[in-house]
Structure formats: structure tokens, C-alpha cells
Design a protein around this nucleic acid. Structure first.
Length: 185
DNA sequence: CCACGGATCAGCT
DNA sequence: GCTGATCCGTGGA
């Protein structure tokens, strides 16, 4: 199992997003390891992308995205759910990839087909805001040692961004075609 | 200070 | 398909 290095994240979110499909999200809590295969993601490109949180400028909430890539951007949505992103680049480009769905591999309890649900199942909250994903610590992303079955990548518009004007239909949602653990819709 | 709304989900009709 | 839950970041006064 190879921990993805910072150079993996140090590219445009549009390039990183399809390549992160099939990678393993590894969460360690109190010595227990939970592993899920990433099957659905969305790219948020930067301040010019009206669907991205960084389009509102640099704030305390979004500050981690304005820094170097390879860190976790976790935020609270609708007062009840957390969402996990990996900050991408290049450099301090203020872009990120949202992890939307996982296929359970080991140790996972609860549903993981949706960004809010997977954070609940993996016990991901604001304490992991800004966590370095390249350390191989409590939260990391790794290339599985077994490549697994080849898959087709499905592309479509992002979910829940109706406010984003001309960006609503941008094909920035990537998923493993036909995977049974995709989020609904 | 106060008001607003969201990168969601579950439950009901 | 529609709505309520639930709360903090954000922006305007």
C-alpha cells in the first residue's frame, strides 16, 4: 500500500479527481483501521468556480484550501453533516476534490454512499480540518497494493450546486461506472 | 447584533 | 417529490 505523496495532489483538481477513484481512504481511530475504496468524487476548481467555497474569497473556514495541497478540508453542512475534501493544487490554487462515496473494504460500520454518510461512518469531523493526508496517520489516502478490476469512469454535473450559475452543468463529478455504492441521484 | 442559507439526509406523502 | 432537522460562517446594519 502506497501513501499518495503530496505531488499527487499538486495538480489541478480536474486532473486529480478521476485519478483518485479506486484509491483507498484509510481512517485510523483508537488503533482500529477503517478502509473504503473511493468510488465517487467531485472537483472544485478554485475562486473562479462559482460552485466552490473558495469563490467567496479566503475566510477562516476555507483557509486550508488557499494553502499547499495534500491536506484535508472538512466542513459542516446544514448544521448536521461533515464533508471531506482533499486540497489540490497546483500550489496554493485554492481547489479541492470532494469525496462523495466509498465502497466498504474493511472495518466500516454504516453507510458510505454519500459525503455526509461516509464522514459519519468514518468518524470524520472538524478535528481533522487541515490534517496532512500524506503522513499515513489517522486519515490518509493510499494506492491499494492490488490494482483490482479495471473500471470505466462516468462523468456528470456536480450535485447540489444549483446556485452556481454557468458552473451548474460543468462535468466535474467522476464516479466508477455501475458501482453499487454511489450516492443517490 | 441579527438574519440567512447551505458541496445533505431521512422520513413522509 | 417535498420538507424538516440543526448550526455556524458569512455579510449587512
Amino acid at each position: 500500500m502506497e501513501i499518495l505523496p503530496r505531488s499527487f495532489y499538486d495538480r489541478n483538481a480536474k486532473e486529480v479527481a478521476p485519478e483518485i477513484l479506486g484509491m483507498h481512504l484509510v481512517r485510523t481511530i483508537a488503533g482500529e483501521t477503517h478502509v473504503g475504496r473511493i468510488v465517487e468524487v467531485e472537483a472544485y476548481l478554485g475562486p473562479h468556480d462559482l460552485a466552490a467555497h473558495t469563490s467567496k474569497g479566503r475566510t477562516k473556514r476555507t483557509s486550508v484550501m488557499f494553502g499547499p495541497p495534500g491536506y484535508a478540508y472538512v466542513y459542516l453542512i446544514y448544521g448536521m453533516y461533515h464533508c471531506l475534501n482533499a486540497v489540490t493544487g497546483p500550489g496554493d490554487h485554492a481547489s479541492a476534490v470532494l469525496i462523495r462515496a466509498l465502497e466498504p473494504i474493511s472495518g466500516i460500520v454504516g453507510a458510505t454512499n454519500g459525503p455526509g454518510r461516509l464522514c459519519r461512518a468514518m468518524d470524520i469531523d472538524l478535528t481533522l480540518y487541515g490534517y496532512d493526508l500524506t503522513l499515513g496517520g489517522d486519515l490518509t489516502i493510499a494506492r491499494p497494493s492490488e490494482p483490482g478490476e479495471p473500471f470505466t469512469i462516468a462523468v456528470g454535473p456536480r450535485i447540489g450546486v444549483d446556485y452556481a450559475k454557468e458552473w451548474v452543468l460543468e462535468p466535474l463529478r467522476f464516479s466508477i461506472a455501475g458501482n453499487p455504492f454511489l450516492s443517490r441521484r
